[in-house]
C-alpha cells in the first residue's frame, strides 16, 4: 500500500522524470533540426523547479530564466503545447513566436521564461507587488541563476522587496557557471551575505535533493504567505549540459564533466523510493507512462501547423475593437 508520504515522493519523482525526459528529447530534436534556435537545458537541475513548485498554489506566480523549461513544466504548463511551441507551431503555447526562452502560461501564473539575465527578478517583484496591493495571500517566485547575482536588478529588487515587505521568494539556482565562466570569476560577494545586508532571511539547501528543496521552500513560502516579507533561497546544483545545446564546453575540465552523474537528482531519489516500498515494477510503469506522454506530445507537435505571420501582426497591440 502506498502511504501519503510515498505518494508525495512519487509525485516529485514523476515531475522530475518528466522534465528530464522532455529535455532529453528536446536535445535530440534540436540535434536533428526539429527544434530551431537556441535551447538551454536544465538537466541536472530538475529538483529545484520541482521542489519549489510543489509547495506553490495555482494563484502563485513564477518568473523564470532562459533555462526555464523545468520551471514551466513544474508549474504545470501543458506538455503538448510546450512541444508545439518549441517546434515552432501555431498551436504552441505562444503560437510559435516565443520559443524556448519565452515559454509562458499566464493562466497558471507562469510569467514566462526570459532571455534577459536578471529580468525575472524585478518582474516577479512587480507580481508580488500586485498580490500585495490586491490584498490576496498569493506570492511570487523569482527564479534566477548565479549568473544574475552580478546584475543590478537583483540588488535593486532585494532592497525594494525588503522595503515594501513584498510576498516574494528569491530562488537562486547556483550551478556554478555563469554562461561560460565559473561563478568564482564573476561574483565576489555571496548571496547569504547579500540577503543579510537587506535583512532578508536566507536559507541554502542541496539543490540535488528534491526533498531538501521542498522542505526549504515550504518554510519560506509559509513565512512569506503569512505576511513576514521576502525570503531568499539558494540551491546548489549542477549544469549537466552546456550553456546552450551544441556548446562544446571547452571551458570545463574533463573531470567535472565525467563526474556529473554523481549529482543526478533522480538517482538520488530512487533508493529512497525503494526504501519507502516502491517496487521496481512500479517505477518502471511510471517511466513508461511518462515516456509515452512525451512521445505522444512530440508526435502531436510534429503534426502542428506553421505559424501565421499575418495573424501575428494583430497581437503587437491589443485589438480593442475601437476605431
Amino acid at each position: 500500500m502506498t502511504t501519503r508520504k510515498t505518494a508525495e515522493l512519487l509525485e516529485l519523482y514523476e515531475r522530475m522524470y518528466l522534465i528530464r525526459q522532455v529535455e532529453l528529447r528536446l536535445g535530440r530534436l534540436f540535434a536533428d533540426g526539429e527544434v530551431p534556435g537556441f535551447i538551454h537545458l536544465s538537466i541536472g537541475q530538475e529538483a529545484i523547479a520541482t521542489g519549489v513548485a510543489s509547495v506553490l498554489r495555482a494563484d502563485d506566480s513564477v518568473a523564470s530564466t532562459h533555462r526555464g523549461h523545468g520551471h514551466a513544466l513544474a508549474k504545470g504548463v501543458d506538455v503538448e503545447r510546450f512541444f508545439l511551441e518549441l517546434m515552432a507551431k501555431e498551436e504552441g503555447m505562444c503560437k510559435g513566436r516565443g520559443g524556448s526562452m519565452h515559454v509562458a502560461d499566464l493562466s497558471i501564473g507562469m510569467l514566462g521564461a526570459n532571455a534577459i539575465v536578471g529580468a525575472s527578478i524585478p518582474i516577479a517583484l512587480g507580481s508580488a507587488l500586485a498580490h500585495q496591493v490586491r490584498g490576496t495571500d498569493a506570492l511570487a517566485v523569482a527564479f534566477f541563476g548565479d549568473g544574475a547575482m552580478a546584475e543590478g536588478t537583483l540588488h535593486e529588487s532585494l532592497n525594494m522587496a525588503a522595503l515594501w515587505q513584498l510576498p516574494l521568494v528569491f530562488v537562486c539556482e547556483n550551478n556554478g557557471w555563469a554562461e561560460f565562466s565559473p561563478t568564482s570569476r564573476q561574483f565576489v560577494a555571496s548571496l547569504d551575505k547579500l540577503a543579510g545586508a537587506f535583512g532578508i532571511p536566507y536559507a541554502r539547501a542541496d539543490g540535488r535533493d528534491v526533498q531538501a528543496v521542498a522542505k526549504a521552500s515550504e518554510r519560506a513560502v509559509a513565512a512569506v504567505r503569512a505576511g513576514k516579507g521576502p525570503r531568499v533561497l539558494e540551491f546548489t546544483t549542477h549544469r549537466f549540459r552546456g550553456h546552450y545545446e551544441g556548446d562544446p564546453q571547452k571551458y570545463r575540465d574533463a573531470d567535472e564533466l565525467s563526474g556529473l552523474g554523481e549529482h543526478d537528482p533522480l538517482s538520488l531519489l530512487e533508493p529512497r523510493l525503494a526504501k519507502a516500498g516502491v517496487a521496481d515494477a512500479q517505477l518502471q510503469s511510471l517511466h513508461e507512462a511518462v515516456d509515452a506522454r512525451v512521445d505522444a506530445a512530440v508526435e502531436r507537435a510534429r503534426k502542428g501547423s506553421a505559424p501565421d505571420f499575418e495573424a501575428g501582426r494583430a497581437d503587437v497591440y491589443t485589438q480593442t475593437g475601437a476605431a
Binding site: I121, I123, L125, A130, V133, R134, T153, L163
Partner: peptide
C-alpha cells in the same frame, strides 16, 4: 498605499510595472 515612493531604482521599477501589470494591476 496605492501611491508609493520608490527607491532610485529605475530599471527594477519599470520591470516591476511589467510584472504588476501581468498580475492584475494597472501601474
Amino acid at each position: 498605499d496605492r501611491v508609493r515612493d520608490t527607491p532610485i531604482s529605475e530599471a527594477s521599477m519599470a520591470n516591476a510595472a511589467v510584472g504588476a501589470a501581468l498580475s492584475g494591476l494597472k501601474p
